[in-house]
Design a protein around this nucleic acid. Structure first.
Lengths: 346, 346
DNA sequence: TTGTACGCGTTATCAA
DNA sequence: TTGATAACGCGTACAA
């Protein structure tokens, strides 16, 4: 078991100084052809590689990006990570992942751990608990320490930083317009409580779309599900809520759901109630997930281009990291959505 | 924008030496109550935190685990990561993620990047290309350098290290036994090419189960799908293959698929051919995914306990890292599978 | 009780 | 052409 070799060891072995070795390896022309070759041969033989940690300490940059997300077992977030990793790797960065598990304290702890030198900047999506408590001091503090942050998807106006967001509003409008165009008269929405910014925006899009088409929104057609319900255990509660929605509003002929699970579950409930999809009720979801593609019938969805979001976020962060100019002018990049029509609409 | 404060700055500010500050902060009783308090107050005020990189360099350990997986947009792998992250965090470690994207060279490059000091050890699952080429030099080299590796799921006998695997063989047998028990006489298997170790094992389990029940395996009932087909674009090809399987073998009354996509797709094809599930054909998949739960009908599956695998892998690695004893006796932990019965079986 | 010196591995500057 | 030295930030053995 040969430990990794260091400059010092090479120097001792070859009876030259450390700095000579260092220079020789970097092809400095201060060094004679002779020793250069000797050193390089030796280094190659022992497979010398500079120690990243030492380089990080010296250069005061780690070439590592910290990602903080609420949950990794989630198509959207894992696709974003893939995008980040893709760009990061291409530009010579590594990626270190912290999960907040939707918890404020875990988010804070994770960020503090990473902010102490381990990374050069953050890409993150805010946890639900943080959004509820509206306590953003950990973000401002890290930014004040000179560590850049790029937020994606779940962002917040209070914090000044680069952001990458989905065009939730227009995405929803597209979906609702499509339902109207397909002949729906009574369109329900299944959404989340308002403190989840994306849920709020998507609800707003639904309302605006209806208004623009001179359709009066009805409170009874708006189902705001408690977030805990996304967890698998509460699927039955979700189903019951949706069933109530349908039975209380027999005339529903279109459903817009702000995520995949809601949409799939709603279709399931509809089928159970002997409603035909899409003949009796049409469905559109909002997601980048895998369920839609394999559902029965396949689900029409608003795609978010998650991977592209990740790529953009990584590019923004690395640009920020590598460009000297101190003038801070943050940008918010909006990733357009795309309506993917499948069999749950006519 | 105040940069992170260092010991040196505190020392200068308070007009004491660096080591005094260091000791004071670590509550050394060499330091007078007086200066200790003074230093601690100042440090707290400026929110001093030791620099991780400096600590890593000094201690020669980074408290960071490197994960290399073929793909992150995959329920199984993201669940494993969640398990790793959970344990790692609990034990004071961070997690850095590299994606091989099923490519040999990306796997090698990623490992080399991380092995140069960035991490203390690896947890990985081997890429398909590596398995095909059977070139494992990068694993042996990192192990020889004294950096421990824990492999999970896609492992390989040639490498001596800790391993966490699913009991693929028995998992498959359980599934096939269940189908037989439920009255299936002609059970087909949809599996991968043999170089994917888990596919091979699951096929073997299928064969053994049949043999134990004195049922003769028929080659025509074994569909070995090309791996590229898992990618979304090739779904149609997959469907066609499965359709051929069904039409060429009208008597199929049970299907065991080695992953979720195969199973779901097969159910879809069956429905298209007007076969009722589970009345005419019963299905069992192999997975920890989200599709099974939301499929129509819901899919009976062999669950792999992915998160538990991640937790175990992390514990193994960290144990290895923190325990002094040099005697290497590697273990292979087998995670038992669990048959989750849903509506695709009677 | 406090401070000096050293080492972790590297590179850059300056001296020889 | 080569080498000594300092610095990145920290902790600690040893000296004062």
């Amino acid at each position: 078991m040969k430990r990794k070799i260091t400059l010092k060891q090479i120097a001792r072995e070859l009876d030259v100084s450390i700095s000579t070795v260092s220079k020789a390896l970097r092809n400095s022309n201060e060094i004679s052809e002779d020793t250069r070759q000797k050193v390089q041969a030796f280094a190659k033989l022992y497979n010398y590689r500079p120690n990243n940690i030492a380089l990080s300490l010296k250069n005061r940059k780690t070439k590592t990006i910290g990602i903080i997300i609420p949950e990794i077992v989630h198509h959207f977030f894992s696709k974003v990570i893939r995008g980040i990793e893709l760009v990061a790797n291409k530009r010579g960065y590594n990626v270190i992942v912290g999960l907040s598990n939707e918890s404020f304290s875990k988010e804070v702890i994770n960020m503090e751990m990473l902010a102490n030198g381990s990374i050069d900047g953050f890409i993150l999506s805010i946890s639900k608990e943080t959004l509820q408590q509206q306590d953003y001091h950990h973000f401002t503090e890290t930014i004040n320490q000179g560590m850049p942050i790029v937020m994606f998807d779940r962002v917040v106006n209070e914090i000044q930083c680069d952001k990458v967001i989905v065009d939730d509003l227009n995405g929803s409008k597209k979906a609702v317009f499509k339902l109207i165009e397909k002949g729906c008269k009574n369109i329900a929405i299944i959404t989340t409580k308002d403190y989840v910014s994306v849920g709020k925006l998507r609800t707003q899009g639904y309302l605006e779309a209806l208004e623009e088409k001179q359709i009066k929104a009805k409170g009874s057609l708006i189902l705001k599900v408690d977030d805990a319900l996304v967890s698998d255990d509460h699927l039955e509660v979700l189903e019951k809520d949706i069933e109530t929605l349908f039975t209380a509003n027999k005339n529903i002929d279109g459903v817009f759901a702000v995520n995949e699970i809601y949409a799939i579950t709603a279709m399931k409930v509809a089928r159970k109630l002997n409603l035909r999809v899409p003949e009796d009720v049409q469905f559109i979801g909002f997601t980048d997930g895998v369920l839609s593609k394999h559902a029965t019938p396949t689900l029409t969805t608003v795609s978010q281009h998650a991977q592209q979001m990740g790529e953009k976020a990584a590019d923004l962060l690395i640009d920020n990291l590598e460009i000297e100019e101190e003038e801070e002018h943050y940008q918010t990049v909006v990733i357009e959505t795309e309506l993917i029509e499948r069999d749950s609409t006519k």
